[in-house]
Structure formats: C-alpha cells, structure tokens
C-alpha cells in the first residue's frame, strides 16, 4: 500500500497537513501553546494585525446562538509594531508556517502593512477584506472592483503568497473570488462570518453592544460549504475552506467541495484538540477511499 501523504502546497506555502487555524480564533498562537502542541497545525493564521493598535468594540462582544456564536470583537489587536517586535519572534520558535492576517481602513493601510511585513519570516499574508465588525474595511470584499484594486495594489508590494479572505455577505461570491484571482491573489479563503443579530427580549436591546456581529460555528457550515463549492469552480487558484468545521467529516466535505486546505475557527474555543482528531479522521478516510494525497480529495464531489 502506498504511503499516505497529508502535505499540501498552498500557493507556495508548504504545509505538513491541510488543517490551518482561522484568523481571530487562535490569537497569535501563544495562548494555545500552553495547552496544545501548536505545531500540529499545517499552518497558523494569526489574529488580524492592523497598522495601528485597535482597542476593539465595547462589551458585550460575544453571544451564544443555536450551535454557533456571534462576535463583534472589532479587530482588537496591538498593531503591527508590537506584532513584529513581540508576538512574531515567539511564534517563530515553532516549526510551523505562519501566515499574518492583515486588515486596514483603506488601500494605503494594506499596502503599508504588506510592506512592513516583508522579510520577517512570514510564510504568507491573508488579506482580511471581509471583517463585518469594523466601519470601513467590511466593504472591500462586497464589491468586485474594490477587491480587484486592493489585491492588485498589495500584490505589487509583496512577494509573499497572498491569500484573500472573502465574506459570505454577498449576492454572488464567485464574482469576488474571480476579482481576487484577477488582482493577483495566490489563494482565496472563505468564509468569514455571516452578519447576524440577537435580541434580549426582556430588555428589548440587542445582545451585542455593536448591535450586529459575525456568526460562526457549526450553524454556518452548510452556507460555507456551498460558497466554497461555488468559488472553487470559478477560480483556478487554491481555495481554503472554513466555516463551522468541528469534525473530520466536516473537513472532508470542504475538501470534496473544492478546498485544497481547511481552517478551524470557533471549534478552537470548544475543543482545542480538534486539529489532531481531524487529521486522524482524514487519514482513515483516505485509507478507506484509496486516496493517497489530499489533492486527490479536492473537488471530488460528484
């Protein structure tokens, strides 16, 4: 029997398995390193980094919903300087590719950030043009033109593999996926959270201080899967699938739908050991279905 190979190469990022972290759910890896071996992941995608520090949104920032949760963290982060000086050096001690997720208010912010994050040992950049919890940047990925222009500008200033993270809050995700590819993206990742809301019927107030927030967790998986399926048929660059994955069956569904790798988000909060369980599950599935490598599974939905 042939040796199973779980390693994947996403736009030049070599990963020993296709299971990544989803931005915003894993901090800068350091908190989780006290609990699990973070090198188990194929790659670590950091919490969003912005040019300047952001204090984020007021409380309450999280609400539990049916098989899911709403968040409106608002990209709280210490900013690029502290990321480069304090967070990244510690994270780089681990043998795992690191992808910095970056966001900005405008094209200039993204370009400056991409410039700052060159030659510091990152394996790639993920452009967060789809966070629903900030005033300005949410709109980039809701419009094909702005997506194309932004990706194109960042493309010109960085040689790092460029992943563009898309929002599900659009009428046709394939248009945005195509625009990202045309703009020079090396891969796309989807989905970011779905905009949602929850109301306390006693106080009659929204449960989130920000009124609306991003829905994640198992509740969003069918939507995410459909969008990965649609987007991967449209583009020829790799697709990283995410949204509500909690089991290896979920992860395999995303691969079958067209993803070349998957990312774990909300499940990290619930069961930080999920990565290993999913890798084990994928191995069993590959053996049972005579797949030798991950790319054999990608897009095999009939």
């Amino acid at each position: 029997m042939k040796q199973l190979s779980l390693d994947v190469n996403i736009a030049g990022i070599k990963m020993k398995n296709p299971v990544m972290t989803a931005s915003g759910t894993f901090g800068y890896g350091l908190e989780y390193s006290q609990l699990i071996d973070i090198e188990n992941f194929g790659a670590i995608v950091t919490k969003t980094v912005t040019l300047e520090p952001r204090i984020g949104n007021p409380q309450p920032r999280i609400v539990e919903t049916a098989s899911g949760m709403l968040n409106s963290i608002g990209l709280q982060n210490p900013g690029a300087k502290i990321f480069i000086k304090e967070k990244l050096p510690k994270l780089k001690e681990y043998e795992v590719p690191i992808i910095a997720n970056i966001s900005g208010r405008n094209e200039t912010d993204f370009v400056k950030l991409a410039g700052l994050l060159k030659d510091i040992g990152l394996s790639g950049l993920e452009l967060n043009i789809s966070c629903p919890n900030v005033e300005h940047s949410g709109l980039f990925a809701q419009n094909a033109d702005t997506t194309y222009k932004l990706v194109n500008k960042v493309r010109k200033v960085t040689g790092l593999p460029l992943i563009v993270k898309l929002t599900p809050n659009v009428t046709d995700v394939t248009l945005i996926a195509g625009a990202a590819e045309d703009g020079g993206a090396d891969a796309i990742s989807l989905i970011n959270t779905l905009i949602g809301m929850s109301i306390d019927i006693q106080t009659k107030k929204p449960k989130l201080a920000n009124v609306v927030g991003g829905l994640s967790g198992p509740a969003v998986k069918p939507v995410a899967l459909r969008m990965v399926y649609e987007a991967s048929k449209k583009v020829s660059i790799p697709v990283i699938g995410m949204g509500g994955i909690v089991t290896s069956d979920d992860a395999i569904e995303f691969l079958l739908a067209g993803a070349s790798a998957v990312a774990l988000g909300t499940v990290n909060f619930v069961n930080p050991n999920t990565c290993c369980e999913i890798i084990d599950g994928i191995k069993i599935y590959m053996r049972d279905n005579k797949f030798n490598k991950i790319s054999d599974i990608t897009g095999r939905v009939k």
């Binding site: 915003g24 759910t25 894993f26 901090g27 908190e31 989780y32 006290q34 609990l35 919490k47 984020g56 920032r61 999280i62 949760m69 968040n71 963290i73 709280q76 909300t266 990290n268 909060f269």
Partner: peptide, 8 residues
C-alpha cells in the same frame, strides 16, 4: 469563548 486569552 476561548477562556485562555485568545479571542478577546
């Protein structure tokens, strides 16, 4: 959510 300082 996370309980360990990651999610803010």
């Amino acid at each position: 959510a996370c309980g360990i300082g990651a999610c803010m």
